[in-house]
Design a protein around this nucleic acid. Sequence first.
RNA 1: GGAGGCUUCGCCUAGUCCGGUCUAUGGCGCCGCACUGCUAAUGCGGUUGGGGUUCGCGCCCCUCCCGGGUUCAAAUCCCGGAGCCUCCGCCA
Length: 420
Amino acid sequence: MIDLRLVREEPDFVRASQAARGEDPGTVDTLLAADERRREAVGRADALRAEQKTLGKKVSSAAADERPSLLARAKELSGLAKAAEAEQAGADVALRAAHLAVPNVIEHGVPAGGEADFAVLTEVGTPPQFDFTPRDHLELGQALGAIDTDRGAKVSGARFYFLTGPGALLQLALLNMAVAQAVESGFTPVITPSLVRPEVMGGTGFLGAHAAEIYRLEADDLYLVGTSEVPLAGLHMDEILDLSGGPLRYAGWSTCYRREAGSHGKDTKGIIRVHQFDKVEMFSYCDPAQARDEHSRLLAWEEEMLAKVEVPYRVVDIAAGDLGSSAARKLDCEAWIPTQGRYRELTSTSNCTTFQARRLNIRYRDAAGRPQAAATLNGTLATTRWLVAILENHQRPDGSVVVPAALRPFLGGREVLEPR
RNA sequence: GGAGGCUUCGCCUAGUCCGGUCUAUGGCGCCGCACUGCUAAUGCGGUUGGGGUUCGCGCCCCUCCCGGGUUCAAAUCCCGGAGCCUCCGCCA
């Protein structure tokens, strides 16, 4: 939810954000009207309740002969107050709905437009030139005995896989390296639940337009998370945090589940787009005034990881229409995938400002000691998909794969993965 | 799966049987002031959160896990739900 004060005081600012997202600026006016109606309703109900309360108190102390008339008045007021309360409840519901319908206000500088309108901020490294025909990650993975998608499909269906032998070890090495970096950088490592309650999933903003992406366990009314951002955001739900010592930073390790509804036919081969994968995710709670700086730091930590695996990548500024409801700005790092001849997303860091925190009731005390909505941010440190970039970029003519130096300590010192 | 207990203003806690003066008790912590020639002790005062209104002081409403109900009136009575804990059973 966005800040209602901002909507009241600078509606044009919010309308402009909606326009950049390609969404209806009219939702802002709907919200303003709902806000106005609610405040009127609250005023009426409060006044009636106050009157009813004082009268009710008189009843207990009234003389016997005054009681009947007092009770009659009280009863009448009670009815009026109930009606006003019902009206207020209706106005509350309407406001909430209008409030939830407005996505986060974009950060200044975010490119307007849709999926194709991203801006490339930087490119790092150069795509490798092979003097042989490079193999794709699946071919490499199969030869190494690292990836088994056939049996993944047999056991669980399309978009499932087994990581075996060196594949399993490589993923563990990568994720462990991510955790090690996070801990060194001051993050608290966390292994999170993968199933969350509806209010947590909803609070993070995932039950809106992308609800079809999410697995739901109907028998238990729980959702499988698509990222540990969800449980990490829920971690401090309904709490008032002490941020006086700087941001609270967590590095979550979890398995992630995605239905990939609507992506039929895309990336059907290998492990680029799968229903289940593992991820180490950074999550930060901070003072909203520091959120922009924190976003830069998260990006820097992502780039540090990408440097360690030695793959060429670029950083893109995602356009407003492609942000998702919670993010004010989203920066993706995309790695070069040789056999596709293009860059693919490996990391994504979002500044959600106070949007998620308002929904989840996560606050901190400002300098004056007043509770205020905190800012939340997240960013990827490593995922299963990284194996694709590592395998393809570091392959050699014989199908072996060189392990990036930084990763070797996490792989028992192995320098090369050899085909079986 | 079965049985029982618990949930109160940051933390702990009184109050719930028997509805109104609960405008919720006390302790810890925190803040302010006073005092003692030190920031220690002591005393006094303040300290839930949300909302409405106001230039402001302030005033008002809501808030005793959540949602309904009874009543002029609910922390308190009734119904439903959630979470936590204990024990039994089952499984690992």
